[in-house]
Write a protein that binds this DNA or RNA. Structure first.
Length: 1020
DNA sequence: GTAATCTGTCCAC
DNA sequence: CTCGGACGCATTCGG
DNA sequence: CCGAATGCGTCCGAGGTGGACAGATTAC
């Protein structure tokens, strides 16, 4: 082939490297990567060492056909070198990265790429091949682009000829220590001897840091570079295990999860997620949504009711059938690690996360007969692929796996697949963190777009100049960290101080401001419309700006539940007064013990639609046909009522007297496909807030206004009575609508105190205290609400110190998903010093899970029954123990000693509890709980409950308070005592509810049924 | 084959 | 629902 | 004066109580 313009000998004769093309993106000041070029002949031997700032990351080698060959690497300088087309390229050095779990040292961490016209089997490829550079077998067959033998799994540009790690290939090139790379030739290129013009050889020496097989996601996002996709779809690599144009591999996600699990730092976690999402946004935006779901332990919005139906038990079964592992081994592993995912930590897989997501949805959608078998089959297949088919034969290697296994993630895919299946990823990131990361990722990527298009004016965008300023300092800091002799905090402080130029500080503040505002904006949006499916497309299309404006398509909407406002717990009424100050106007509402119900109702095409959502945003509409009926009846009465969203508590009430009933009774209601005629437990819906009315969102309005609208538009209903049941002669209540009972702070403290007493004496949990108007609170509190509609130009308030008692604005708006001081909850079980504290004896325990894997948790607790002189188990307890206490327990009750036995050696009746180990009863603990419950498990007070002789009593929300050193086990609480407490509890609250005389007459059965059907048909 | 019971999962607090 | 732990930030304390 | 200590808010994940439901299994 005739040489073209750029010839090798030009390069060779030149003292310096031949012509170079500087990458256009090369403008920022980066670390001074250097590389060396040297020729072998006398002339050309001169090593050309070049140091340039802002070096891009690849060397482009131009061959005689003027095709480009690229050596690409992180932190590598770019240079163009003319070489002959069939030059022999020899690699002299291997990367040395090794994953702690990998037996394989990735042999080479860069790659020589060749030209567009190169195809499999071409000369160069064979030359390289002959040199023993590993080639993945599937590549040649599968590759249908110009890639010669680029690693199938590499995410490099198609043009690149990948020479990446492959654990199974024999490498002729040995791995060397990675840290003295400066003068180690990485490759030498010898020209075709046939071509007289190319009788020279060059050696290319490049300084490279060890390359990770996956990108280091922990990097500060400002230093984590993702180059945008070029117009033709070419781009640069994000990780070496991802073929361009294919969906993001599951292994990338797993890599992120592994990175997450390796740290506890919130900052690092946020960075990892941010960088992962940035990669996906740029390279495979379709994977963003599945990734978000996979990261958040869910497959869809809560109210869509997508359930996997796969739990630890099925996993365990599959692990047994799929592997040669025995059930005892599994049990032991589980005992040891306390995590089913860790149990599955044996093998390796790579699979597209998008594909995985689809399989999971498939599992979730399987219903009916044998569905468990189907679920099991799919799960098994997934796990098998996550494990490699060779697993069965005992080989941990994934060599013959149907799926490309990733040697760097040995076992991790299986681990996280299992954790995904049981929906407990436990990597230190759930919803809020993911949202923050998503917001940041969007900002970073849209900023990139902005760079490309300076005319675009985006509010949620980082200025390119600010970005550069920040990055520059970060690089400086990093460099000093690397070169620094001591890694003390002192040093880093000095560095940061040195970096604190006014320009930097200003840029940093602007940047942080944008990020914080973007986070706040997304979180706010999500709180009002918690559905990734709706949010993500907008974000990808328009960035944060797309969800910021008033006209955003993802705001408060009928049919999509709003996240709830949360209340801060208070320990006493005094605390409440102290917190809110003397001047604030607030109301105290009765906190009923029922189930939160967010009701959406609206007219549509002449029909009335009603949706009821639970606290966790599950769709509970089917559970409350009576409420649905009640609501639609309200629409009939009020023709001007068009739509609303209200917040309320559904409480079980006596169907005849209207008295409040226990939570346990409410829980006894049927849940699925409930017919209105079959409702057994009557409910009253206690309304307390209104977020939306007749097309207008109200959440920005103060509570006083919202409450007024609620009261005027949804007055308490007359009790609805249905006569179509098997009711006796008189009518009985079916459902009722009311407002929560409340008093105002204005009425004076005495009234409030009295109300509080009433709450204590009732079946209610306590009080909710809510601000009525926007106000100010005096508190030395640094919190700063970042409003998304804050003016962009407005810089953040300068830091002020001094006045520790600063006044903080406290809005009385409805703040979804926020725990503010605007809502305070005062729970009686915490305030009361009385009764519900029990003295119990620890008599057994289970092996803890997760972070408590090394400890006993939970602990089985018992009462002392003097009648039979034995201990009777009451409940388990896991709350209230400190880590130190767990450690003490380990010492006090070591397994297999005379204080802790696998079999029951002592006189203990455990009822339905089957602890892993039994403790020798020897101490008394004070345990607190909220209520006593009738229990199918506990044997305490068995036979003493009139309505359920076969049941015992147990404790709701048990928590450990302290050890009672002063008590012997015979002095522990007795079954009789527990029984008495229960009776006291049951007799409470007889006065609340409505009286018999308030009952109204019967409604025709037909009309009830009919209206119910019509109103609920559409939302199944 | 139907009914009763068991088991696992999910959901409420 | 419960709780404690861990982190990160801001402020105060103490040598 | 600067580093250490302390306080506070936030986030996370350990796991408690009971009950319904659906499918699988067993009893008759």
């Amino acid at each position: 082939m005739p040489p073209k313009k750029r010839k090798f000998d030009e390069a060779g004769s030149s003292q310096r490297s031949p012509r170079k093309r500087v990458n256009a993106a090369d403008s920022s000041q980066q670390s001074l990567d250097s590389f060396l070029l040297s020729g072998r002949s006398a002339q050309n031997k001169a090593i050309v060492k070049e140091e340039r700032s802002g070096a891009p990351r690849e060397i482009i080698i131009i061959d005689d056909n003027e095709e480009e060959a690229t050596y690409s690497h992180k932190g590598l300088a770019t240079e163009n070198v003319d070489i002959a087309i069939d030059s022999t390229i020899t690699f002299n050095r291997l990367g040395s990265h090794s994953h702690p779990n990998s037996p394989v040292h990735p042999p080479f961490d860069g790659f020589i790429s060749n030209t567009r016209e190169m195809s499999a089997g071409s000369e160069t490829s064979s030359v390289l091949h002959n040199k023993g550079i590993p080639i993945k077998p599937e590549t040649a067959g599968k590759s249908n682009d110009t890639q010669v033998f680029g690693d199938e799994t590499s995410l490099v540009d198609e043009k690149h000829v990948g020479v990446t790690s492959d654990g199974n290939a024999t490498m002729p090139l040995h791995s060397t220590s990675s840290h003295s790379l400066m003068s180690t030739p990485i490759a030498s290129v010898s020209t075709n001897p046939v071509d007289p013009r190319a009788q020279q050889t060059i050696a290319i020496q490049i300084q490279i840091p060890p390359l990770e097989p996956f990108p280091n996601l922990t990097l500060n996002p400002f230093l984590f570079e993702i180059r945008p996709r070029s117009p033709e779809g070419h781009g640069t690599s994000a990780c070496s295990y991802w073929t361009r144009g294919t969906p993001a591999p599951y292994s990338l996600l797993v890599h992120a999860l592994v990175s997450l699990a390796a740290t506890k730092s919130r900052i690092a976690i946020l960075s990892i997620l941010t960088n992962l999402l940035r990669i996906l946004i740029v390279y495979d935006s379709e994977s963003v949504l599945p990734a978000l779901y996979l990261l958040s332990n869910s497959l869809g919005a809560a109210w869509e009711g997508i359930e996997l139906g796969v739990g630890g038990s099925i996993i365990s079964k599959i692990l047994q059938t799929t592997t040669s592992i025995t059930s005892t081994t599994i049990r032991n592993l589980y005992k040891k690690y306390g995590d089913p995912g860790d149990v599955a930590y044996y093998a390796v897989v790579g699979e597209s996360s998008g594909a995985l997501y689809k399989d999971l949805r498939k599992i979730a959608s399987s219903r009916g007969e044998k569905s468990q078998k189907i679920r099991q089959a799919i799960t098994e297949r997934l796990l098998l692929s996550a494990v490699g088919s060779s697993w069965k034969s005992g080989k941990p290697s994934g060599q013959d796996s149907i799926i490309d296994l990733n040697p760097h993630l040995l076992g991790e895919e299986a681990r996280y697949l299992v954790r995904t299946l049981i929906q407990n990823l436990r990597v230190g990131a759930v919803r809020t963190t993911i949202l923050s990361a998503l917001a940041r990722a969007i900002v970073f990527t849209t900023s990139q777009q902005r760079r490309a298009d300076p005319t675009a004016l985006l509010r949620y965008s980082i200025l390119a100049s600010d970005c550069d300023t920040v990055r520059k300092v970060l690089l400086q800091v990093r460099k000093q960290d690397e070169t620094g002799t001591s890694g003390t905090s002192k040093k880093s402080k000095q560095i940061s101080k040195a970096a604190q130029t006014p320009e930097y500080l200003a840029a940093q503040e602007r940047v942080q401001n944008v990020l914080k505002r973007a986070e706040a904006c997304l979180r706010k949006t999500y709180a009002q419309h918690p559905r990734y499916d709706d949010i993500v497309p907008v974000l990808l299309r328009e960035g944060i700006d797309g969800i910021a404006g008033e006209n955003s398509s993802v705001g408060l909407s009928l049919g999509v539940p709003v996240m709830h406002t949360l209340g801060s717990p208070m320990r006493s009424l005094d605390d409440v007064y102290e917190r809110l100050g003397p001047n604030a106007s607030w109301t105290a509402e009765m906190k009923y013990d029922g189930q939160r119900a967010q009701v959406h109702a609206w007219r549509k095409n002449g029909q009335i639609k009603v949706k009821i959502f639970s606290r966790h945003l599950e769709d509970m509409t089917d559970k409350y046909p009576d409420i649905v009926y009640l609501i639609s009846r309200r629409f009939d009465t009020d023709p001007f009522l068009d739509s609303f969203i209200v917040d309320s508590e559904a409480v079980a009430v006596d169907r005849f007297t209207g008295e409040l009933r226990s939570f346990q009774e409410l829980a006894g209601r049927a849940r699925r496909d409930v017919k209105i005629s079959e409702v057994k437990v009557a409910v009253c819906l206690y309304l307390f807030d209104m977020m939306y009315l007749n097309g207008t969102p109200l959440i920005q309005k103060p509570f006083r206004e919202r409450r007024r609208l609620l009261r005027t538009h949804l007055p308490p209903s007359e009790p609805v009575v249905a006569g179509h049941n098997d009711a006796p002669t008189s009518s009985h209540i079916l459902a009722r609508l009311d407002h929560v009972e409340s008093v105002e702070a204005d009425e004076g403290r005495e009234v409030v105190e009295e109300f509080w007493e009433k709450a204590i004496e009732s079946k209610c949990e306590g009080l909710m205290i809510k601000l009525l108007d926007d106000t100010q609170v005096t508190l030395g509190d640094g919190e700063e609400d970042i409003e998304d509609d804050e003016d962009l130009e407005t810089p953040k308030r300068a830091k002020k110190n001094g006045s520790s008692t600063r006044r903080k604005a406290l809005p009385a708006t409805y703040e979804p998903d926020k725990r503010t001081s605007a809502w305070l909850k005062l729970k009686k079980d915490y305030v009361e010093g009385i009764g519900d504290s029990l003295d119990l004896v620890p008599v057994g325990a289970w092996h803890g899970n997760g972070r408590k894997a090394a400890w006993w948790s939970p602990i089985l607790l018992a009462v002392y029954d003097p009648a039979g002189d034995q201990l009777v188990a009451l409940c388990k307890c896991m709350s209230g123990f400190t880590d130190a206490f767990y450690k003490e327990l380990n010492e006090k009750y070591p397994e297999g000693t005379e204080t802790c036995s696998k079999t029951s050696l002592w006189n203990v009746e455990t009822g339905g509890y089957k602890p892993n180990v039994y403790f020798k009863p020897s101490e008394v603990w004070e345990i607190r709980g909220a209520d006593l419950t009738i229990s199918p498990t506990s044997a305490t007070a068995l036979g003493m409950i009139p309505q359920a002789r076969d049941r015992g009593l147990s404790l709701r929300f048990p928590r450990f308070m302290r050890i009672r050193l002063d008590k012997k086990i015979e002095m522990a609480s007795t079954p009789a005592f527990v029984h008495q407490l229960w009776r006291n509890q049951e007799s409470k609250g007889q006065a609340l509810g409505i009286g018999e005389d308030e009952l109204v007459d019967v409604i025709e059965e037909e009309s009830v049924e009919e209206e119910y059907e019509s109103s609920s048909d559409e939302h199944k």
